[in-house]
Write a protein that binds this DNA or RNA. Sequence first.
DNA 1: TTGTAGGCGTTATCAG
DNA 2: CTGATAACGCCTACAA
Lengths: 341, 341
Amino acid sequence: MVSIKDVARVAGVSDKTVSRVVNGEPNVTADTIEKVQLAIAGLGYIPNLAARSIRSNRTDIIGIITDFISTTPYSGDIVRGVQDWAGANGRTVLLANTDGDQDREANVWRTFKAHRIDGVLYVAMYHRVVVPAAGEVSIPTVLVNSHAEDGYSYPSIEPDDYGGAYDLTRHLIDLGHRRIGYIRLNPLLLGANQRLDAFLAAAQAHGLSENDMIIRLGMEGPIGRETNYVYREALDILSLPDRPTALVCGNDEMALQAYLAALSLGLRIPDDITIVGFDDFRTVSLGLKPELTTVALPYYDLGWQGADMLDQLIQGKGGSETERRVLRCSLVTRRSSTRVC
Amino acid sequence: MVSIKDVARVAGVSDKTVSRVVNGEPNVTADTIEKVQLAIAGLGYIPNLAARSIRSNRTDIIGIITDFISTTPYSGDIVRGVQDWAGANGRTVLLANTDGDQDREANVWRTFKAHRIDGVLYVAMYHRVVVPAAGEVSIPTVLVNSHAEDGYSYPSIEPDDYGGAYDLTRHLIDLGHRRIGYIRLNPLLLGANQRLDAFLAAAQAHGLSENDMIIRLGMEGPIGRETNYVYREALDILSLPDRPTALVCGNDEMALQAYLAALSLGLRIPDDITIVGFDDFRTVSLGLKPELTTVALPYYDLGWQGADMLDQLIQGKGGSETERRVLRCSLVTRRSSTRVC
DNA sequence: TTGTAGGCGTTATCAG
DNA sequence: CTGATAACGCCTACAA
């Protein structure tokens, strides 16, 4: 590998001068700069960041620790948000996945520490409460799509599931729906309860009673290996004599099954039944016909802004050690929801 | 940060002895080892890999360059395969995404070089022909889910789309289907042509004529922004007077739309129409009712084995510089396909 | 079995 | 404005 010394020799200057040029430090003649840059180009010199880091104690690397990358389809968006931030800010991203395993996680923290990375984004693929297993290792950390269990203090950034579900419910009520079905997510997910709470609150606030709502559990069991009742429950709800005019699904995948149930009963969407989802998981929400009214979660922004929060923390700017940021979800109105006639 | 010297001082030995213990080198007394390990534990010492790497010229880091992470839902599986390999072999993974942009890609290669990573996995999120834009930078590289354009020589690993589609078609023929519809993927995808070719070859080999097949284009246009005709074409095919008994979809997302079309026409799956997909994208293939017969692509293994090939290349073992490995796809039979009655 | 000297590629310090 | 020298944390080579 060509080193700074090679460049110095070719350019006829000292290695420190090359260093100055490479790092854009002041007090170098335009003339010298050109000589050096010529030599750099000629030799194809690329600075060795590892060597740099042992002097400067900064690596400009941030690490991402994920629990279940790829089990959930939109997981990639958070990571992409982080990457784009990193690319725009001269950082590089180390990625590690724990598969939810504590030992693996402990290892990951040690490895990241060994690489002397500047900070960690601890990314949950399902919105949930977490306890990072960092062990002895201490690295500036921001929790993404999660927050810490009581007693642990980490800055965090999460989606506003509650607000999103509230808006969605209001949308239905505004369309005149007064009898609404609801198929719940796995209760293990933080979003499941927040969404249901918001649904109930919005319904109540607009004068709906408990009898106007038909609430069913769509799935339960350990995440990744849950039992799925969605199709059956959807069939059941839609076969009721006093069938609801709208059906809220805990997420878009559930909405898919609700579509199939509705269609197989000969119901038309949205004329006979309005169906809405949550997540705006586009493979589904745009693949369904008619396209699905749903709530878009700010995954990309969670990644981008999470990285930004981490940066603040590393720089020591701002008392962000306990910041808990919450990002809005936005209602996406498509053709699966319509006014009651 | 605590360094090897701190450990040495506390343990009352030289730094080289600590180094020996840390790296498991021979010729150290059990007694000394214990002293050192005690000091390490006490101080929470973690070796600085950057420092190590400038001496040894190995970083044990491999880089992943992706084009469109997260646009495609299964992309995560390739990355997960790589990560698991890395975790099992003491490597760490640097991740960078180019969004298909040449300038960004050039930057990524330079950054990776600056980190002196051992090798690169160049991962295409759609099976396609690629030309890595490494510029001046040279790093051992393996292409994953892609192969190089003629004239470029890189080792590569790809799925056997052809074989998978052949098996799928045979499955239908074995079930007695003699009139089969086919909705094509975006022709820009390598898999699109391989799958269609295999379909035609298998059909022909089993005595079907051109008239027995109804072939339609499902989508076209630049990847990520294509125009989608699937639903319309499916409706059309299924409304034909001499409707086929089976419908092959270019991938599972297309199969989703075919389901919706079939159901909205009052057809039952699989009794009235057999529908099959491709990819085994589980959100869809298991979310559909009845669950979808499809072909599973070996994404995880592409990642894992790709990493392994890269390792061979780095170690210089085996003449793998031009190896082109192809991995089987496997037919997954579920309830959406049935015998013709 | 253990330690010393020196060097990897870079930057900080300070003198010229 | 430029350069010599030392230092970062670790490992190689060699000596003890």
